[in-house]
Design a protein around this nucleic acid. Structure first.
Lengths: 299, 299
DNA sequence: GTGAAAGCGCTAACAT
DNA sequence: ATGTTAGCGCTTTCAC
């Protein structure tokens, strides 16, 4: 009866009474016991790589937690820092039946995760992670449409972000090629005004008139580097960032940036988890739908 | 033997061989079963309130995860967003034996958490959360030492941060009182240059010469508001933030800010968890040690 | 000191 | 359709 199966011979009213009594007694099904007996838990583990966490990622996490909660799944997050436990250990410890990450896991990790009890691991092998490539394309197109012929790309110094930067740069390269323009001049930068000033000098010397920055912080650094040379944006050098961080519109001049619709990504990921959990077999990769990416222009 | 108790009659070499064999077979003790039998898990659940997550909090999480991992405990994080599951549910679902949060939980939640299986819940009742008060004090002292006689305080518009802002403002008020100065003029601001400009006008009209901002983003907004009036910092109005966000030193002028030593906070929290788990009874609150808080001045 | 056995709190598969 | 029972994979306790 406590199984609460419907269509009982027991009168409905009585059933409700029992259920209410149980609630009043603060009864909780013991999750560990349940997981042990059923062989699966309702835990989904989200692994965050070692990257700076901003508003975007928080929204992603909370959105995913909400979408999964609607299906009685519980999301917990693990920050894959240097000193924490390895992901498979965490997976085993919480008894997660699904693990989702941002970028694709390497095959060895995937195998370990499955051994640790995860039925579904996402993103599966070849799936694009975060729509990095399209972001670069849109940045470049925005600048090209405004007449810029020679673009620069500002890479990030953060190691954990390097592969994302490469993906985004790829999009910029593609957009330049499609427009018949020379490839962008990609330069390493850091969150330091002097380093950024050097890059600015280099770009100026090469005739670059517009920069796609990896993100808004990088873009802010470039603005600072330009100030050191007495240059102003966008006249001397146009800059476009990514993320729309809170300080983006407070910059001088306000930053043009890329806004990223998390909800779509969230929904898609949640559905993938649900689908994977529904039928562990037949994990046909669904088609990746590019999320809505939009430019917020300050000009 | 698999219990791995020391001091066996079995030769050491054999023991190691067996252990290694187990490792090679990718054996993992099933966490749910272990938790069920032992009545406690090695999971610690960290609850993050609905506040913007930045580098500081990430460092806190990773540091705590590392400190606990050293004691064979696994940290997982839960973002208490609007649509996720309530904390006690998550606690029960992962079978956490400890729950740690940033601010004190209310008594009802604490009771529920214990019922959900948590042996220790931190911070316990009266404990200070995050050294908010001292931060405000140090901000104010820094400005007062530089000769400012009339301070302003810039509150944040973010609802989740309001109580922190009050605590920090309390520190500023105290520092002003101690120095025999009038109470600071606290004004609501938001991350919008126009709103900040209004606040700046008001402060100027009241003879305020220096602002303690709730955090670096608020401070950046004030700088933007000052630009709208053609004012420059620190001559016309000195501003000090909190957090040392990456863009702080990229601002024009570079922001003076408060740097917060996370390691100390982390260590203290980890120790509290360990102590609580060691003897569930006798939860005498340890003395709160103010963490090291230091000013990074741009001048 | 070593092995066997009895549960932990549930779920699922079974008889009735 | 209902009640009963056998485990899930461990830990702990109790005999040997």
């Amino acid at each position: 009866m406590l199984n609460n199966r419907p269509g009982q011979s027991i009168p409905e009213e009585t059933r409700q009474r029992v259920l209410e009594a149980a609630r009043n007694l603060n009864y909780r099904p013991h999750a560990s016991a349940r997981a042990l007996a059923a062989g699966r838990s309702d835990i989904v583990l989200l692994s965050i790589p070692d990257i700076p966490i901003g508003a975007g990622i928080s929204r992603f996490i909370e959105g995913l937690a909400g979408a999964l909660a609607a299906h009685k799944l519980t999301l917990v997050t693990h920050l894959a820092g240097a000193h924490g436990r390895p992901l498979p250990d965490v997976c085993a410890a919480v008894g997660a039946s699904a693990v989702v990450g941002f970028e694709s896991f390497d095959p060895a990790t995937i195998k370990e995760l499955h051994r640790a009890g995860a039925e579904v691991v996402l993103p599966s092998h070849a799936e694009h992670s975060y729509a990095m490539h399209p972001i670069g394309q849109i940045q470049a197109k925005h600048l090209i449409e405004r007449g810029h012929q020679r673009l620069g790309y500002a890479l990030t110094a953060h190691p954990g972000l390097a592969s994302m930067a490469r993906d985004r740069l790829g999009g910029v390269i593609e957009a330049c090629a499609e427009a018949g323009l020379p490839a962008p001049l990609a330069l390493a930068t850091s969150l330091d005004a002097d380093v950024a000033a050097d890059a600015v000098a280099r770009w100026s010397a090469e005739g670059v008139t517009a920069i796609c920055a990896f993100n808004d912080e990088t873009a802010t650094a470039i603005l600072a580097g330009m100030r050191a040379h007495g240059l102003t944006s966008p006249q001397d050098l146009a800059v476009i960032g990514v993320d729309d961080i809170p300080t983006a519109r407070l910059a001088d001049p306000p930053l043009t940036t890329i806004i990223f619709d998390m909800d779509q990504v969230v929904t898609r990921r949640a559905e993938a988890v649900l689908a994977g959990l529904a039928k562990t077999t037949d994990q046909s990769d669904q088609a990746w739908i590019d999320p809505q990416i939009v430019v917020r222009s300050s000009t």
